[in-house]
Design a protein around this nucleic acid. Sequence first.
DNA 1: CCGAACTCGGAGTGCGATTGTCCGAGTATG
DNA 2: CATACTCGGACAATCGCACTCCGAGTTCGG
Lengths: 160, 160
Amino acid sequence: MGQGVEWAVHTCVLLAAVPPDRGMAAAKLAEFHDLPPAYLAKQLQGLAAAGIVRSVPGRRGGYRLAHPAAEVTVLDVVRAVEGSAPAFRCTEIRQQGPAAVGRAHYRQPCGIARVMWDAEAAWREVLAATTVQDLLVEVATTAAPVAIRRTTDFLQEAAR
Amino acid sequence: MGQGVEWAVHTCVLLAAVPPDRGMAAAKLAEFHDLPPAYLAKQLQGLAAAGIVRSVPGRRGGYRLAHPAAEVTVLDVVRAVEGSAPAFRCTEIRQQGPAAVGRAHYRQPCGIARVMWDAEAAWREVLAATTVQDLLVEVATTAAPVAIRRTTDFLQEAAR
DNA sequence: CCGAACTCGGAGTGCGATTGTCCGAGTATG
DNA sequence: CATACTCGGACAATCGCACTCCGAGTTCGG
């Protein structure tokens, strides 16, 4: 799993904490987590292309969530960054070798692939059950008061 | 996900089809699925190191399953080849940046990491629910009779 | 109306992991 | 005891990820 996933989810949670009609520049988003600004920008491009965030160009531009935080699941963010291709690729090696028979005889998909795909479906189901809103609420209720204060201070300074 | 996973699982299912006190050479295992012999040998080394298969050196040596096929889960095979490290690595970026506070304030693990790890746990659970024996039975009951015949012919010729 | 500064967007680069290959050490056989 | 066949680990090529930089576009201030 790529490193960018962690950054993207954290960034979306941060964006969920700014007022819905405000945005934040990519450089500020990177500064909040001390990340390489240029590379986070690349991830944000992926999020924008997937419709998770909306980019606003210009002098006071930046990024903002394209939809309410309660409607954005963790799965959406992961798929935007990592792509939606299944992790397991079945190359149908059962159709190769001395025991292979005509292609028409393999009507059902390979049992191994089915198990792998079922596992990935269970994985996606868990990720789809949690929204960015849920994550924000959890942080807001469990984080130390000092950390919350510093975050609000940062938001007041950096939000547009 | 690595390509070797598919090869390893298919190979274990094939090994489950040979009599328990017999084995098969790596070259023959590769020939059955038309795979690069040297690279499959590498995967088999991983399986042997993890205790999934047992290697027999010498003139009439080869590989055989180290345990009954009903006791080997797909998860075991995947972890032997891909490693048991979690796909998602939490680098604790919440502890970096201007809003970070002392390390002692982060008692609970990061909520994002928890969701990711829950998803991976669900993934592993599905993979652990299917054994190599299950896969072999499914192939034996659903494959075309011609394919089964060719497989048994191959086994009689290649098994040791 | 115009200049300027700041924003996003895509093209370009280095590195680590995976893929793939080879030859040597070891063992049961005849 | 010689041999032929096996596994085992050491050795390159390829691909995707991590990272950076500069140009196009837009809004703000004068």
